[in-house]
Amino acid sequence: MEQITAKEVVELLNEGKTLNIIDVREVDEVTNGKIPTALHIPLGLLEFKIQDLDKSKEYIMVCRSGARSGRATQLLEGQGFKVINMTGGMLAWEGKTE
Rank of each mutant, 00 (worst) to 15 (best):
M1V: 08
E2A: 14
E2T: 09
Q3S: 13
Q3M: 10
T5K: 10
A6S: 14
A6N: 03
K7R: 13
V9M: 07
V9G: 04
V10L: 11
V10E: 13
E11D: 14
L12C: 01
L13Q: 06
N14W: 00
N14H: 00
N14Y: 00
E15S: 14
G16L: 05
G16K: 02
G16F: 02
K17T: 01
T18Y: 00
L19H: 10
L19K: 08
N20T: 08
N20R: 14
I22M: 08
V24H: 02
V24I: 09
E26N: 06
E26I: 04
E26G: 05
V30P: 06
T31M: 11
N32A: 15
N32D: 11
K34S: 13
K34N: 11
K34M: 13
K34T: 14
I35T: 10
P36R: 12
T37I: 13
L39V: 13
L39E: 15
L39D: 09
L39A: 05
L39H: 10
H40E: 04
H40L: 12
H40Y: 00
P42E: 11
P42A: 13
L43G: 03
G44P: 10
G44M: 12
L45V: 01
L46A: 06
E47F: 07
E47L: 04
F48W: 04
K49V: 02
I50W: 01
Q51K: 15
L53D: 02
D54R: 09
K55V: 04
K55A: 00
S56T: 15
S56V: 09
E58C: 00
Y59I: 07
Y59V: 08
I60P: 00
M61K: 01
V62T: 09
C63Q: 04
C63S: 12
C63D: 14
R64M: 09
S65C: 03
S65G: 15
G66V: 12
G66F: 12
G66R: 11
A67P: 00
A67V: 14
R68G: 11
S69C: 08
S69F: 04
G70M: 07
R71E: 11
A72S: 13
Q74L: 11
Q74W: 03
L75Y: 04
L76M: 15
E77R: 11
G78T: 05
Q79G: 00
Q79P: 00
G80K: 10
G80Q: 05
F81Q: 06
F81W: 06
F81C: 05
K82Q: 14
V83E: 06
I84A: 01
I84Q: 06
M86E: 06
M86Q: 05
M86F: 06
T87E: 14
G88D: 12
G88H: 12
G89W: 09
M90N: 07
M90F: 07
L91F: 11
W93E: 05
W93P: 01
E94I: 02
K96T: 13
